[in-house]
Write a protein that binds this DNA or RNA. Structure first.
Lengths: 344, 344
DNA sequence: ATGAAAGCGCTAACAA
DNA sequence: TTGTTAGCGCTTTCAT
């Protein structure tokens, strides 16, 4: 069924040279005559030889980098990956992805799996593991953490200023005349994650901005999860309030989707009855029938930067770590408008 | 910066046993006393030993399977992956994904990369490579092809009956009273792909069903691409028709998204002015403000089945190939309705 | 410029 | 039950 692998030995024999020679030619290493090159390449072609990455891995690099994503359904991660892929295209690294399914234990397993398979480097997107664990990973393999803040210890960080981004949304809604602006956040209790995770920073930014706009008394946060169902549940709870909010700021666009599910189901119009804003500016937010007001954190640029930092670290593992923060921008679309007179 | 790897030799020395013993214990292989087990496991724990997958790969299996996806933005693939992941959870295989970015050359590179890294098996989702190429891959590594039809040569196939699915949509629209039902397909010229790719089968099913319903004269196919932009461009062209269609059947839900973008932009209401149907039943189709009529091809079940077949083939590479086809179901939601009287 | 040989970490015969 | 040893395919000194 399956034919035996063509190895470097087969090529060497076929070309009548040493395996060393083949190795050099294949790797474009110096010290080969033009004549030898052509003979070896002919044999490679003839036999259909492909170097075994496994054998190479045993001697060092694998030319493979791994990305751990929390969730394949949130299109924001596709934006990040586009950026990573773009930057990696200039190198000869292969990119493999694995999902942690939003679960800490699974995230650990997947990261270990990547390390066991000797990835040259890993990019962890919005990881939820403990900082100690992240430091351990970074100690073992060049690591870049995306979308999580906090003191970098051994790894580079690329993130968006979530605190400021949340402020942009609140300012936008307050200017439109909203006072009862509610926020749906991803539930979080761990103290480190409360300081480092984007969801927590957005919630903090929301609270801070509400106070700054004199709306401290109207702060209203519902804790669910950063996915569509979390948005649905959060909105349901907000709709049950004695006094409904006039605007809902969902911590992520995917959460806003769930909010819109719930509002549609309840027969409410957006933004007529209630305004909705998200965060991430996933391509879905631009979907015309929705036209979601959101915050653009340029996932593409984040991904590119992460890939660049990772390659730099792979090239020089002792280079000092850096922390890049991008400032986000508000993208006002059609789900936000001044509150209706009756509800004001 | 990075500490040297803990190897099986370190563990053996620490536990005062042979490397063979460690290897056996770690793999739960037979032939180890309880006493030896505990000593070895203690050493493993103490030293934080993790077997090198690269070294294992050189001896055989890697416990890794690779999935090649055309595109990370089409949420239908996430449904398939959920199914794959679910089935794989019962085995100790790790799942890595790679994107081909809808490009044949890239698909080839990515598949080679997976083979080079000695994956135990690969799942190719809606691959566009030539059949010869697929046979080559299957000849090299256990392979399951998902979402592409055709004579199986060396690989298993799991797909949905796209021809029948398209018929369900046409029947639904015809029953509602539509006659001018247009179809947006993914442009295809390669003869083999015309016979095997889901997009081509759906287009064939559309034409066949139109004739079966006596609407042969109204057949109207626009060729673009299976992504959101393709849907947008296709709809624009249909709106420019002297006599507009009353219903648009997009070959995929993601295409329908683009159609809805265009219709919204043109100020047309759905289904008031025009009905829209998709295919795939991605979770987005259930998004309440849209409520897209579509065809459910149970990506989850397809993924589960693909994973099962792959594990079976890994266990026995000579077992005969099988071809599983699932029958799809229409999911009628709110984007389809009888045509308006004026346009009839 | 070219090649011989050691060895990366692990598993699988085979011996004891 | 336990250990010795020969590779898996490649890269890398080190000779030539």
């Amino acid at each position: 069924m399956t034919r035996p692998r063509v190895t470097i030995v087969d090529v060497a024999r076929h070309a009548g040279v040493s395996t060393t020679a083949v190795s050099k030619v294949v790797r474009n290493a110096p010290g080969t005559s033009a004549q030898m090159r052509s003979r070896v390449l002919a044999a490679v072609e003839h036999l259909g030889y492909r170097p075994s990455a496994a054998a190479r891995a045993l001697r060092g690099r694998t030319d493979t980098i791994g990305v751990v994503l929390p969730d394949l359904r949130n299109p924001f991660f596709a934006d990040i990956l586009d950026g990573v892929t773009e930057h990696l295209a200039s190198s000869d690294h292969q990119l493999f992805m694995a999902s942690s399914h939003d679960d800490e234990a699974s995230e650990g397993r997947v990261t270990d799996a990547l390390i066991d398979r000797s990835m040259d480097g890993v990019i962890l997107v919005a990881p939820i593991s403990s900082r100690r664990r992240l430091e351990h990973v970074a100690h073992t393999v060049p690591t870049v953490v995306v979308g999580r803040h906090g003191p970098a210890a051994g790894y580079d960080i690329v993130a968006d200023d979530d605190f400021a981004g949340a402020g942009l949304v609140v300012a936008h809604l307050a200017e439109l005349g909203h006072r009862r602006i509610a926020h749906i956040e991803h539930h979080e209790t761990d103290p480190v994650r409360l300081a480092e995770m984007p969801n927590a920073r957005r919630a903090d930014g929301y609270r801070h901005a509400m106070r700054a706009h004199g709306l401290g008394a109207d702060i209203d946060v519902v804790s669910t999860t950063y996915n569509r169902d979390g948005g649905y549940r959060g909105a349901r709870r907000l709709l049950d309030r004695a006094e409904r909010p006039t605007a809902i700021f969902a911590g992520a666009d995917i959460v806003a989707m769930g909010v819109l599910d719930a509002l549609t189901e309840a027969g409410l119009s957006v933004p007529g009855d209630i305004s909705v804003a998200g965060y991430d500016n996933i391509t879905f937010a631009a979907f015309a029938p929705v036209a979601l007001t959101t915050v653009d954190q340029t996932g593409h640029r984040i991904g590119r930067t992460a890939a660049r930092l990772l390659l730099e670290r792979i090239a020089d593992r002792s280079r000092p770590t850096s922390q890049v923060t991008f400032f986000p921008a508000l993208v006002a679309r059609r789900t936000t408008a001044p509150p209706s007179l009756s509800s004001r």
